[in-house]
Design a protein around this nucleic acid. Structure first.
Lengths: 225, 225
DNA sequence: CTGCGTCAATACGGTTGCGTATGGAACGAT
DNA sequence: ATCGTTCCATACGCAACCGTATTGACGCAG
């Protein structure tokens, strides 16, 4: 039975639970909170649920396990949320606002640099594993939930459009820009999905080459200048 | 509550269940079966479960819903399988044996043609949606199950190695072959994952271009001939 | 007809999970 | 001190599942 193995130790204090889950204390909630930050805010719940979503997917995200992870009981959960569906809504919204684009835009620079930044996102990100799990969880969830499917498709579309725009700014014609944008997106997404990409060696070997195939102009007809 | 909505109508005959689930009757089981094929074999269960895995993921694959889908009760299930874990094992094995590589090899031809075949797999496949869902479900499942992670990684590695081998046969040096193999895999995988790829128009627009970026030699230095 | 193997129905106990109801502790305001 | 707000605990009913035990229907060999 390869599925569950926890849920034996229940009944524990908040501090114990936090200690064993390896999670940092909420730390915001009340801005003046001194040490323990004894009360949880809605945002603490959403953040913890977000982590669980990445680990186990939406289907195995239960209210009671979430509460146990936070060291409280579900009595508290239903004070902050109407429903489990209410929590899931919040998760969808949070994921939508986790914008990669704004991060890239904030870094600024020429379109070429932005593309390079996009290409390196997974490589740079220390916790690529979690990012990939999230993307995976969202898409797996989207297969059986229409609203999630809507959200995910919208985000994908936005990312693709943005990337295609960069390529157009660089000078590719619209079709070529769209194709390269998709290739780039597929490449970055796959980096987060395939576990053998965690061997740094493989990634180091192929990254520069992939980057060239995706982002550089054709070698024969070098455009202008 | 966007999750469940079925499981109200239970208690029905086998034929009713099959009719309303829109599924074809098992149709093998007993090779001499005339009409209804009244008895189910272990393989029928695995096949039905395989379909449910694609639709809902491993977490939401329950024995009782599976039985209901087949028009029987779980009393029957536990005759064919020791466990739910037993069924999941069978699913993992089935997925492992669903070899794309052998299909491509069977078609034969020069390495270039095989690469082309790989590139067109999703485009050709009429039920790309289901294939993508399966790949997605397996990987989402693998994030929380070690054995599945092992299986998936082995399959990915095999596919990557095979594709890299093709590129080496074409004449690329090993590093370039590996990089292009990954790009190809990422491209094909992503086609099955992103829902906006279901618009045939977009795919038609970018496919040729992507194919060139992935499979064709650099335009500047055209190799030999 | 009898017995046996095969597949399935029914019934049961146990666990997990959802959502509700209700009460209590901490804290600030009046 | 009293009250209201905020967060949490406990207890309950209910449904979905898992796995087991028992019994039944059906075909087939003897």
């Amino acid at each position: 039975m390869p599925d569950r193995k926890e849920s034996e130790a229940d009944h524990q204090t908040r501090e114990e639970a936090r200690a064993q889950s390896g999670e940092a204390a909420p730390a915001l909630a009340l801005s003046g909170g001194g040490e323990g930050a004894s009360k949880l805010g809605r945002d603490d719940w959403v953040r913890a649920a977000y982590a669980m979503l990445a680990e186990g997917g939406a289907a195995s995200l239960s209210v009671e396990r979430l509460a146990a992870r936070l060291g409280v009981t579900k009595g508290s959960f239903y004070w902050h949320f109407k429903d489990r569906a209410d929590l899931l809504d919040a998760l969808r919204r949070r994921w939508t606002q986790q914008l990669v684009i704004t991060r890239v835009e904030a870094a600024g620079g020429a379109p070429e640099e932005k593309v390079a930044h996009l290409l390196d996102i997974v490589v740079r990100s220390t916790r690529q594993r979690r990012g990939g799990s999230l993307e995976l969880a969202m898409r797996s969830w989207a297969r059986r939930d229409a609203e999630t499917a809507r959200v995910v498709e919208a985000v994908d579309q936005e990312r693709l459009d943005y990337t295609a725009g960069l390529f157009r700014q660089i000078g590719f014609d619209p079709e070529e820009a769209e194709a390269r944008a998709f290739l780039l997106y597929a490449y970055v997404f796959s980096q987060g999905v395939f576990t053998f990409m965690e061997e740094k060696a493989l990634l180091a070997r192929i990254h520069a080459l992939c980057r060239r195939r995706i982002a550089e102009p054709e070698d024969g007809a070098r455009a202008a200048e």
